[in-house]
Computed example of a mutant assay.
Amino acid sequence: MVIKEELIAGRRIVVAAAAGPRLSGRRGVILGPGATATQVKVVLDGAKRFVTLHARYIDLLRNPQS
């Protein structure tokens, strides 16, 4: 699981497999915190709107070129 302090706006992420087949593997960018301390607003690549995901479904991309 990702540490809450690492979930800052602008970080690139990939959605974890535990999120289910529709979202798993999708990449995006963190926009900011969600409604609760464990939620994060994310805009996925190619999407027009953001989605709110629980932090357990987010993995940070370590390589900025990805």
Rank of each mutant, 00 (worst) to 15 (best):
I3R: 01
K4V: 01
E6G: 01
L7F: 01
L7C: 06
I8F: 05
R11L: 02
R11N: 06
I13C: 01
I13A: 02
V14Y: 08
V14D: 02
V14L: 10
V14G: 04
V15P: 07
A17Q: 11
A17C: 09
A17H: 11
A18M: 08
G20K: 07
G20I: 06
P21G: 10
R22N: 15
R27K: 11
G28P: 07
G28C: 08
V29I: 15
I30M: 04
L31G: 12
G32R: 00
G32I: 01
P33T: 01
T36G: 04
Q39D: 15
Q39I: 03
K41Y: 02
V42F: 05
V43K: 13
L44V: 07
L44G: 05
D45F: 07
G46I: 07
A47M: 14
V51M: 11
V51Y: 15
T52Y: 00
H54F: 05
H54A: 11
R56G: 03
R56Y: 06
R56M: 11
D59A: 10
D59M: 13
D59F: 07
D59Q: 11
L61S: 03
L61R: 09
R62P: 02
N63F: 03
N63K: 08
P64T: 12
P64V: 06
Q65I: 09
Q65M: 09
Q65P: 03
Q65K: 10
S66N: 11
